[in-house]
Design a protein around this nucleic acid. Structure first.
Length: 189
DNA sequence: GCAACGATGTCCT
DNA sequence: GGACATCGTTGCT
């Protein structure tokens, strides 16, 4: 039987990121296996927390083990898992899932049929899982959230993060090597 | 296949 | 006014 993942969200986001690859993320029973995630930190020019707390990023400075949900480009809802200690401002952005649970619900929310277009990108993950501002600050260890432990050690790919203009060399993008559900392929070596 | 672009909330200069 | 942790559509170098 599957069991709950025991992720230590007090660890730095760059350590939590790889640990999340292969973990199943569900919201109200809908979701899939995490195949891509990115770490962000307070001392990180690409991070929302870099310039200090604001009303938007307040959850990122709150307790670890909770959700930080933000609106991207005025349109998409994106989900982060808060890391380190309260007040630090670190998190892991969920960028892509391999859909495993509630495919029909996600198809209806997304308006597409192809499983590879359901959760391959942070905005798509938010839409497929029904995420909005009301999920901001919620605990990840109780409903509607559920994290199911992975089975075995996945082969982890790393590389530079996507869609940013600062700290382009920081290799804090993590993915399941060879997955067909990544938002983009990882650079070859 | 890929570059350009629009949509548009929140924060910064 | 401009940038941005994006995505879907358009139109053709």
């Amino acid at each position: 039987m599957p069991h709950l993942a025991h992720i230590d969200f007090h660890a730095p986001s760059a350590e939590v990121g790889p640990l999340l690859i292969g973990v199943t993320l569900l919201v109200d029973g809908v979701g899939g296996r995490i195949v891509e995630a990115e770490a962000y930190d307070r001392e990180d020019p690409a991070s929302h927390s870099f310039s200090g707390p604001t009303p938007r990023n307040a959850s990122m400075f709150g307790e670890p083990g909770r959700a930080y949900v933000y609106r991207s480009y005025g349109i998409h809802w994106c989900l982060n898992l808060v890391c380190r200690e309260s007040g630090h401002g670190a998190g892991v952005l969920i960028r892509a899932l391999e859909p495993t649970h509630g495919l029909d619900i996600m198809r209806a929310r997304r308006g597409v049929d192809d499983p590879r277009l359901l959760c391959s990108g942070p905005g798509r993950v938010g839409q497929a899982l029904g995420i909005d501002r009301s999920f901001d600050g919620m605990r990840l260890d109780r409903p509607p959230f559920e994290l199911v432990a992975r089975e075995g050690e996945p082969d982890i790919a790393t590389g530079p993060r996507i869609g940013i203009s600062k700290a382009l060399d920081v290799p804090w993008r993590f993915g399941m090597a060879g997955s067909r559900f990544l938002s983009k392929p990882f650079p070859r070596r």
